[in-house]
Write a protein that binds this DNA or RNA. Structure first.
Lengths: 145, 145
DNA sequence: AAATAAATTATAAGAATTATAATGTAAGAA
DNA sequence: TTCTTACATTATAATTCTTATAATTTATTT
């Protein structure tokens, strides 16, 4: 299933002027296989053995390209590294305030919030993002000791 | 009204070990008066004339303190500067993808999302954050030309 | 197979934020 | 009020994430 989505992403890219290079494919593959929310540096390190000469800039460049094409989203966290998330079905993130773990959960898109925001502010709204913060089970257990 | 909230914030700080300094008060005052979402640097520049010797570190230090006490929230935007928002009533933000303008809109807190996230992930959830993205009226008009 | 447009690499630069150490100051105690 | 001390501020340097640049390489088109 991750493979199908990867294929879809590759096809989406072929429709644009974006060329398929080994590095680019590997980054995409890593994003879809890991199903996590890696930072640029995590991706870079993960592919180091396969591409010993790859530059960090390549990772950043490609992530920007993927964002522009709309197949990944960037999750920003202040001065710490951004994380990158494949765009799949409607989901949001729960983030542990202690350890930073990110877990997906599915929830229907909040269309009514978008609509209200449009009416109230006059913006032409096209998307939204939500993060829920709390303490993960692991960190809850630790604090009990 | 901004004044009352400022007073409340000052009182909240007095209950902790946090001392009230002129710089600290000025930063708080700016946050509550401006009712915008300034960056650390904007605050720094705004208070430059009043405190010619103030250090940027002071602004950052205080914003961190305010966050810890829970009177401001940090809004993060990748590698560009964070913005800081006074915690007042339940509201979310609409952000213009073209010019970056941020506008508040009120909406009841999405408690049901938090509850669902708790059940599904086992996290102990305590807050959430949502941003809606679109194009502001100004930028919509420009693109029509 | 040659041409060209795009991608990669290596490196340097930029910007936001934090750490450090010395100095200054708020607030409670004497 | 003055003294004390723990907390704040300042100035500067360091760190970290990300982007820009220029030279080289490579994918696609002709």
């Amino acid at each position: 299933m991750a493979n199908e989505q990867l294929q879809e992403a590759v096809n989406a890219l072929k429709k644009t002027k974006v060329r398929m290079t080994p590095q680019r494919h590997a980054i995409l593959e890593y994003l879809y296989d890991s199903m996590s929310h890696p930072t640029a540096d995590e991706i870079y390190k993960a592919l180091e053995s396969k591409f010993p000469n790859m530059s960090v800039a390549t990772v950043y460049n490609n992530l920007r390209v993927f964002k522009e094409v709309g197949i990944v989203k960037e999750l920003t966290y202040g001065d710490s590294s951004s994380r990158f998330d494949c765009v799949t079905t409607d989901h949001y993130h729960v983030i542990c305030s202690q350890c930073g773990k990110i877990v997906d959960f599915h929830y229907p898109g909040l269309d009514e919030v978008e609509t209200l925001a449009e009416h109230v502010t006059g913006f032409k709204v096209n998307s939204h993002r939500m993060e829920v913060y709390g303490t993960c089970p692991d960190c809850s257990n630790i604090s009990k000791h």
